[in-house]
Design a binder for these strands. Structure first.
Length: 529
DNA sequence: AGTGCAGTTGACTTT
DNA sequence: TAAAGTCAACTGCAC
């Protein structure tokens, strides 16, 4: 008997380990609810709710193949040992998982137990993330090759096994704090497929230019992130679906009127097709980043807890009123309308668009001068699509502690004026500002009488920015900083290969100082390509 | 008509 | 995926 241990791969389609296990004998499909995992500070009841829905959908898919999901609650080693004894298990099949420190330790314990018990664990790669990479060289072409492999179909049939499933514990039974998230995306593969289809057919046309504004992003972004985070969809399926869409659009460009794109297709003319193609290119590069960032955590699991760059690891950053600042930030009471609207929207929906995530993290780290781990953990619990590798890389980057990235301090007022000019998003989530005229909705402190219930700014934007910048640049200027930064680059930067991708040519007039031009040869990896 | 000037724009640098 | 500062070129306008 083989166990297929489902983790963050909650699907039967394009599930290579399930197919391999099914091909070699009866399969016991298992999900283990691990109470210790749910006690970790980065997990929350909204994650569990999404998981529960995804497990129900997975079990239905498995049942249609002949064998529903077996759910057990407990420590993974205990559960596996019990099942192994009851069912003469010889092998465990699972996908490699690059998740948080807790799952990393758990996998080591499971591996140690399996060796003692003489049970083989077959782990296969799920995304474009590689174990024990010697170098980042060639990473991108490996990613492309992986994503172009044919999708593995679901097994035709699973031999029923005589094992009883337990019911899922409730969130309260796991000790999870109540966490209502009324506008959360629903879990499960069918919901993920619906999102994928509507994105590629209808919603994605303006993705490229509409992904940043919180007004347009909820519909123009793919919204696939939680389905990828829980593996309801595989990265390969999403990649291939977007490539098929791209190919169809190109074909329509070459033979107008033939197209074959279907009646519901909204790509009426060549201009629409151009928007679509640019948006799909943009989307494709984000799929790439997904694995690129997770790879960083795979290569350096400590990045969950400590700065990539050593100069920032012992930083004592918090101010005396850090707890109050953190609370104001979390609850959307900072007095900066766009920040507050984002934080309140996030609480209710479990999602924020990328640029707004960057802004709220930057605000917490720079303006509020909070140690990055506190806001990072809060955001981890709030994001339904929490993916540690992406999350901690991003949080470190927005806090300026990677040592290798440009310091980007977002101005919440400028972002507000740029991304929500008419204040629609702000008024939607911050009703205290309903009476503010457009001209003042970004700066309500100029006329506080019009919003008596809205808080005054927690910090002075200009002053806080100036103080943060002076402190962070002081560390950057220290003698040992650039030396250590080179190590971070060597370990984590993505290399560009053989002139396939272009990079900005500094031009003949540019002053080419040697160390800088050496750095320009590569994308620093934590920045956009 | 050309000049001076305040204000604007854009490229580039610094933080 | 930043924003502010700097500087030179440019613009519109008044004489």
């Amino acid at each position: 008997m083989n166990i297929v241990w489902f983790k963050r791969d909650l699907r039967v389609w394009d599930h290579a380990t399930l197919a391999a296990a099914a091909a070699s004998g009866p399969v016991l499909p298992l999900y283990i609810v691990e109470p210790d995992l749910w006690a970790q500070p980065d997990l929350s009841a909204r994650h569990y709710a999404f998981l529960s829905e995804s497990l129900i959908a997975l079990s239905a898919s498995l049942a249609s193949l002949g064998q529903p999901l077996i759910i057990r609650t407990g420590d993974a080693v205990d559960v596996l040992a019990t099942l192994a004894a009851e069912h003469a298990v010889t092998s465990i099949y699972a996908h490699q998982e690059t998740w948080n420190g807790w799952t990393y330790d758990r996998d080591r314990r499971v591996n140690a137990w399996a060796r003692r018990a003489a049970i083989t664990i077959y782990e296969s790669q799920q995304h474009g993330v590689h174990r024990a990479m010697a170098s980042r060289r060639g990473w991108a072409s490996k990613w492309n090759a992986m994503m172009r492999q044919p999708v593995t179909p679901a097994p035709a049939w699973l031999t029923p096994v005589p094992a009883q499933t337990a019911s899922l514990p409730t969130a309260a039974e796991l000790g999870l704090a109540p966490d209502p998230c009324p506008q959360r995306q629903p879990g499960g593969r069918p919901a993920g497929i619906a999102q994928l289809k509507s994105f590629l057919k209808e919603r994605g046309r303006g993705y490229r230019f509409e992904m940043s504004s919180p007004v347009t992003a909820p519909t123009s972004c793919s919204r696939l992130s939680p389905y990828l985070a829980f593996g309801c969809l595989s990265m390969r399926e999403v990649y291939q679906a977007s490539q098929r869409r791209r190919d169809a659009l190109r074909e329509a460009n070459q033979s107008p009127g033939v197209g074959g794109l279907g009646a519901a297709d909204l790509t009426a003319g060549p201009r629409d097709r151009t928007s679509w193609l640019k948006s799909l290119t943009s989307f494709n590069s984000r799929l790439h980043w997904h694995c690129h960032f997770i790879q960083k955590l795979e290569d350096e699991p400590e990045a969950e807890f400590r700065a990539f760059h050593p100069a920032y690891r012992e930083w004592q950053k918090d101010t005396p009123d850090a707890a109050a600042r953190l609370l104001a930030w979390q609850t959307g009471q900072t007095g900066y309308p766009l920040v507050d609207a984002c934080m309140r929207s996030l609480a209710a929906t479990g999602w924020l668009t990328f640029r707004m995530r960057a802004m709220v993290m930057s605000f917490a780290s720079y303006h509020l001068w909070l140690d990055w781990r506190r806001p990072a953990l809060y955001l981890a619990r709030q994001f339904v699509d929490y993916e540690p590798g992406i999350h901690y890389s991003q949080c470190q980057m927005q806090s300026g502690i990677t040592g290798i990235n440009t310091i980007r301090i977002y101005n919440p007022v400028k972002q507000s004026q740029d991304q929500d000019k008419a204040g629609h998003f702000i008024r939607n989530w911050v009703p205290e500002l309903a009476a503010m005229p457009d001209a003042l909705v970004h700066t309500p402190w100029l006329k506080p009488a019009l919003a008596p219930d809205y808080p005054a700014p927690l910090v002075d934007e200009k002053l806080a920015r100036k103080q943060a910048a002076s402190q962070i640049y002081a560390i950057r200027r220290t003698a040992t900083h650039s030396h250590a930064a080179k190590h971070v680059v060597a370990k984590h930067a993505s290399r560009r290969e053989g002139g396939i991708t272009t990079h900005r040519d500094p031009g003949p007039s540019a002053k080419a100082t040697a160390p800088q031009s050496a750095c320009k040869q590569m994308d620093l990896g934590l920045e956009s390509p």
